[in-house]
């Protein structure tokens, strides 16, 4: 049994069926990519997993416990972290503070009023935060305003914010969307290194085949709200149904 199981999930927006009886089983420790053309329901699937959307029918189980109906902060506290398509960071705060917040969230839970102690006196929190910034290569910028970072660096920071929580599962929504080739490659390298060092289960939603084939252990192809093929990247490459879905029947 996998770490994350999506069971018979359906989701409609008005008359549009975004997810049509989706079943998915993610094995622990793997990088699982979900690909598909625009409108295939990839992002909807992700939003169902993190509690942003409630499915019409079906369930999402994380380590056997249902995620459906829980709020985003509860799901995160269970060990699921999310990386957004456009990096969501605390742009008014310093890089260090950006990483300290998730570290505190792990230690203190979803709500604790600690209004008397100083943040800079919490040595163990600070050490962890600085170590993770070091490992993504942002240590020397730790006192900078994070809003001034480049997009690639914002993505690094967001990854650091997720990894510092030592999650069991990370969901990445198009981690290289809108990036230059160089930034894309840097992000791939970072994710590959993270996989070696931390070995966290990851679900990556991606358009860019280059990213998928560089990182994924398994790939699910979605079209019109349904998974059509699942397999290793090499199996997917040659599958005619994938080309059908992407190119509407035209052959390369």
């Amino acid at each position: 049994m996998g770490i994350l199981q999506v069971q018979n999930v359906n989701k409609s927006f008005g008359g549009l069926k975004a997810l049509n009886n989706v079943n998915l089983d993610i094995t622990e420790g793997t990088v699982h990519a979900v690909i598909g053309p625009n409108g295939a329901g990839k992002s909807t699937l992700l939003n169902v997993c993190v509690g942003r959307l409630v499915p019409d029918t079906g369930a999402v189980l994380f380590n056997g416990r249902p995620l459906t109906g829980r709020s985003p902060h509860e799901i995160n506290q269970m060990g699921v972290a999310r990386v957004f398509q456009t990096p969501e960071i605390f742009a008014d705060l310093s890089l260090l503070e950006n990483v300290v917040i998730p570290t505190l969230a792990v230690r203190d839970g979803s709500f604790t009023v600690n209004a008397w102690g100083r943040v800079d006196n919490q040595a163990e929190i600070r050490d962890r935060a600085e170590a993770i910034l070091e490992s993504v290569g942002l240590a020397e910028k730790r006192h900078h305003h994070s809003g001034n970072l480049s997009r690639g660096d914002k993505r690094r920071l967001e990854l650091a914010m997720c990894l510092v929580q030592e999650p069991k599962l990370v969901l990445l929504d198009e981690p290289t969307a809108g990036m230059s080739r160089a930034d894309t490659n840097a992000t791939i390298d970072l994710l590959a290194r993270m996989q070696e060092e931390h070995g966290v289960t990851k679900i990556i939603i991606e358009h860019d085949m280059h990213v998928v084939f560089s990182l994924a252990d398994r790939v699910t192809v979605m079209a019109q709200g349904t998974p059509i093929v699942e397999g290793t990247p090499n199996e997917i490459k040659g599958d005619p149904r994938v080309q059908e879905a992407y190119l509407g029947g035209a052959h390369l």
Partner: peptide, 23 residues
């Protein structure tokens, strides 16, 4: 304090804070 840091985080990005496990 950590409490104050959370409040400042609310101001800058409430979505991120929710997905960081904070209510």
């Amino acid at each position: 304090s950590p409490f104050g840091l959370m409040l400042r985080a609310i101001k800058t990005n409430q979505t991120r804070l929710n997905y960081t496990g904070i209510s």
